[in-house]
């Protein structure tokens, strides 16, 4: 990076091996290097099982790396500087919508009154006010994911981590939530690390798109997205968008194929031995 300020998140030679104590360790990630600037919306795309979620969980502190390190620079003193939105199972079925949103605030030590006030504000911003006393079971998938986003944003994190948050939604709903997310991000420009397997989604949302290889996940490509902000999902109707996407895809396809060929050669060499 040419930027003189320190990156918000910097990963150096991060690796993760699962079942390392057994005879069949699984090398899931890395070595992986990455710098993310303050306020950057960074999307990571990659095939299933490429370790992109593993990387996110390491940044979140849910998992330690097997080697290397990730450093996260924080400006404030908030107890929850990093918030995460999961694809599923993130919100609790035994709490009402409002109680779900209050959860992060209350465990962070905020008084019930303040938490309630803040929760109501974020419920309003995500169009959930009238559902605040409902249980998640009564909501559609899109509504539930809005609750998850409201809960993450309510703690006003410096960094928002999103793990395929829209993967389980249908195409129309997905587009609506992308639009809402763009508007929310535009308002206060937090650093976002967004995992998806949709190239299109990554281009619509991100300042930068990172593409990862198959397992063990490594960086294949890092591309700046050339489209101006504020963006809307209508962007994808523009010819430039499709041109960019097609160009990127061709490029990637070539690299993925090359990478797969390399893998094959390595395997064959291994077999001959």
């Amino acid at each position: 990076m040419t930027d003189t300020t320190r990156p918000k998140i910097s990963a150096r030679s991060v690796e993760r091996v699962f079942a390392a104590e057994t005879d069949n360790p699984v090398h899931a990630l890395g070595p992986f290097d990455l710098d993310i600037a303050d306020g950057e919306f960074c999307c990571i795309v990659g095939p299933s099982g490429c370790g992109k979620s593993t990387f996110l969980r390491i940044v979140a502190g849910l998992l330690r790396p097997s080697a290397g390190a990730v450093e996260v620079d924080l400006a404030g003193t908030s107890k929850t500087p990093i918030a995460m939105v999961f694809q599923d199972y993130g919100i609790y079925p035994w709490k009402t919508v409002e109680a779900n949103v209050r959860f992060g605030l209350e465990v962070g030590g905020m008084s019930k009154r303040d938490a309630r006030e803040k929760a109501l504000f974020w419920l309003g911003r995500l169009g959930l006010t009238e559902f605040r006393n409902a249980y998640p079971d009564k909501l559609s998938g899109g509504m539930r994911q809005r609750v998850a986003i409201a809960r993450a944003l309510a703690v006003e994190p410096e960094i928002l981590l999103m793990d395929e948050p829209f993967a389980a939604l249908d195409a129309q709903l997905r587009q609506i939530l992308q639009e809402e997310l763009l508007a929310l991000w535009e308002a206060d420009k937090r650093t976002v690390l967004f995992i998806t397997h949709s190239l299109e989604e990554a281009i619509v949302l991100g300042d930068r798109v990172l593409v990862m290889t198959a397992r063990p996940g490594r960086m294949l490509e890092s591309v700046q997205v050339p489209f101006d902000r504020p963006r809307t999902p209508e962007l994808r109707a523009e010819p430039e968008f499709n041109e960019f996407k097609a160009g990127l895809w061709d490029h990637l396809k070539l690299q993925v194929e090359q990478y797969l060929n390399e893998l094959r050669t390595v395997e064959e060499e291994g077999d001959e031995r």
Binding site: P65, E71, V72
Partner: peptide
């Protein structure tokens, strides 16, 4: 100074076999 969160390997990651043993 400014707060830095470091995510780095712990004992379980550096010596997985010994740790489990």
């Amino acid at each position: 100074g400014p707060r830095v969160l470091r995510r780095e390997p712990g004992v379980a990651e550096i010596k997985p076999r010994a740790h489990v043993r």
